[in-house]
Amino acid sequence: MAEFILRVSNLHKTYGDLEVLKGVSLDVQQGEVLVIIGPSGTGKSTLLRCINLLTRPDQGQIWVDGEEITAPHADINGIRAKVGMVFQDFNLFTHMTVLDNVMTGPVKVKKMPQEQAHELALFELGRVDLVDKASSYPGQLSGGQKQRAAIARALAMNPKVMLFDEPTSALDPELIGEVLEVMKTLAREHMTMLVVTHEMGFAKEVSNRILFMEKGNIVEEGPPAQLFYHPQRQRTREFLGKITELYGEAEK
C-alpha cells in the first residue's frame, strides 16, 4: 500500500436521489499522470472534489500518502494542504497580487515565516514562468497567466497530488498551450497528477493512464495507446471519436 500515493476504494456519492459516484476505485502511484475523460455530468468533478474533501463521500475510503483521509477524525485542513487543486475558472484571490496569492497558503496554513514564503512564492512563480507578473493583480492577467498563477499557488503548498479540473476549458484557444506546457513540465518532474481534460494531445504525450468515466463508474482505463487505438468498449471508442472531432486531434 505504501507504494500508492493515492488510493480510492469503492467511493459513493449521492445528491438527493442522483447517484453521482457508484463505487469508484482507483490506485495511483507516485509520479503517475492520470487523465480522466467522460461525458458531462458523469461525476468527474465530484471525484476530484472528494479527493480533497471539498465534497464528503457517502461511502468508501481514500488514502493520501498512506493516511486515510476519510477516517472520522482526520485533519481535513491538513489533508487539503497535501492535495493541490486547480479549477476551471482559476478562482484566484482578486484582492491579492499574484505573489500574495501564492504566498498566502504557506503563510496562513503552514505558518511559514513571511520571508521564507516570499522566496518560495518567487520560486513557484519561476516554475510557471510568471515572475514578471508577481506584483500584478489577477484582474490584470490573461486567462493563461491566471491559470499559471493558480498552479503556482497550489504548488506552493508542496502537495503530494495535484488535481486539475478542466484547467484549460475556460481559456481562449491560443492560451491553452502555455498552461499545458506548464502541466507537461510538472508531469516530467514526476508530480502525481489527476487531470480532467479534453486535451487529448496532452493525454497522449504525458499521461500514464486514461480513465474513461461514465455515469458514476470508471468503465475503461489503460495507457493512452491502448485507449486510443484498441479500446475494449464501444462507448469508449465513440466518446474518444466525439472529443477528437470537437477538440481536434492530438496537437503536434
Binding site: L54, N77, R80, A81, G84, F87, F93, G105, K108, V109
Partner: peptide, 18 residues
C-alpha cells in the same frame, strides 16, 4: 464575491474562518 474563491481557499487548507 462568489463561491469559487471560498472553495479555492478551503482547497489550500484554510479553515472557513481563515
Amino acid at each position: 464575491i462568489g463561491s469559487g474563491q471560498m472553495l479555492a481557499a478551503r482547497a489550500l487548507g484554510m479553515s472557513r474562518l481563515q
